[in-house]
Design a binder for these strands. Structure first.
Lengths: 229, 229
DNA sequence: CGTAGCCTTGAAGGTGATCAATGTTTGTGG
DNA sequence: CCACAAACATTGATCACCTTCAAGGCTACG
């Protein structure tokens, strides 16, 4: 029943591409591989930031909440992602977001000291991290650009994006258990609205949901929707 | 009539804090100070990214547009800001946004080569740039969190933020000529809606606008509004 | 004096939020 | 393995907030 996981052995993480084994060793010194269960919290917003996390397997969400109890998913992390790198060079850093596993996941926690010693001075690593940051920045800017478009456009774009990011091979099943609430939190809407939309799509044969696994039957239609009229 | 500008001499830019003059010299080698008139374009989305820009004076907006002609202001740059640093380490980079002056501004354009030689390998500079990136990332995430809140909350928050960022001293006048269209583009709304809102506020004596200079008469009310009920 | 850019106002209508109630599935402990 | 709790999905009714479209006014400036 469990779909095959996309596992990334540490030495072939793209951040460490072309690194000698002993160099990789330096970069993960004191590191701790952690297995997370569905919904397990890696760290909370406000916690002192003592380590970065390298995602090895599965998916995690970065969440920000406001006083009114609204939650907003600011990022979906996937294998290869580095979480918290920007923070490490600050004095006495604290995580600005909460990080929660979606489905089971595995991350490598690397202590701040190791980061400061082995990562920060390395121009190549910095560059690779910058590339990731650039992606994330672009992505969130694109989302801002889309915020005025109809809900269906935003949800379609999200699903297409998640599918690209997480699906194994060409198969159109999201291998992580995403709830409608999470979709709403990501596109800035409400559960009810997302449900109505996705029910329509299901009726039209575009989607199918089984046990929180979303299967896209007609990806082309979704892509079309994500462009809007 | 022109308000006093906040000028930042190059050697006292916060990025270069505690740098020896000759080190600063290395960092701005080949640099070119450019004066921009209101609405002048520094670079367009899609242009090859040949230099970073250090904002010395005035204000600039970073804009992203979509095929439908919608514009979204993703960032307001102020003196001390570094624009484009994330791009420089990419192979054959292109600007992802358009950068336009708001009011008259002055920037220092620093060639990519200089950046790669003098900035990229310097851990201290990297750290300072990271700090800026962190701010921007946090800010745009906060905006995403606010996207479901009523328009008045978003506009109030924007104005309060801009005031903090740009006003000289304690005086509550925005020293840059921001249009309602730009406010709308920033909060993700329409001109008309922003106008109606600000007209109300003007009627209530919270704001005053004279020749695109927005003066906030009752900042406390605005701050209150920015929290929402 | 005419154009360009910005601001304003009104009317109409829709998208999506809110509230409330209920069904369904999953997980847990006895 | 059953029962109950918790989490998630669904549906309906209502309505406010904002968008859209259209028209017109104001001010600066060449």
């Amino acid at each position: 029943m469990q779909p095959p996981k996309k596992t990334i052995p540490i030495h072939q993480l793209s951040v460490f591409q072309d690194f000698k084994p002993e160099r990789v060793e330096e970069c993960i010194r004191g590191g701790l591989a952690v297995t997370l269960k569905h919904r397990q919290v890696l760290f909370r917003a406000g916690d002192p930031a003592t380590s970065i996390a390298l995602v090895l397997q599965g998916a995690l969400k970065l969440v920000k909440s406001d006083p009114h109890g609204n939650e907003s998913i600011v990022h979906f992390a996937s294998p290869g992602d580095t979480i918290g790198a920007l923070l490490m060079t600050r004095k006495d850093p604290h995580y600005p977001v909460t990080c929660v596993s979606i489905g089971s996941a595995m991350v490598l926690k690397i202590p701040r000291e190791t980061y400061l010693q082995a990562w920060a001075p390395d121009a190549v690593l910095q560059q690779r991290i910058n590339a990731m940051l650039y992606q994330r920045m672009s992505h969130i800017q694109d989302e801002k650009l889309q915020q005025r478009r109809p809900l269906q456009v935003r949800v379609a774009a999200l699903l297409v994006g998640l599918l690209e990011k997480y699906s194994n091979g060409a198969d159109q099943v999201l291998p992580i258990p995403i709830t409608r609430q999470e979709i709403a939190d990501s596109v800035g809407s409400t559960v009810e609205s997302v449900i109505r939309l996705m029910s329509d799509w299901t009726a039209q044969g575009i989607l199918r949901t089984e046990d929180r696994q979303i299967e896209v039957l007609q990806i082309d239609d979704l892509i079309e929707l994500s462009y809007g009229e």
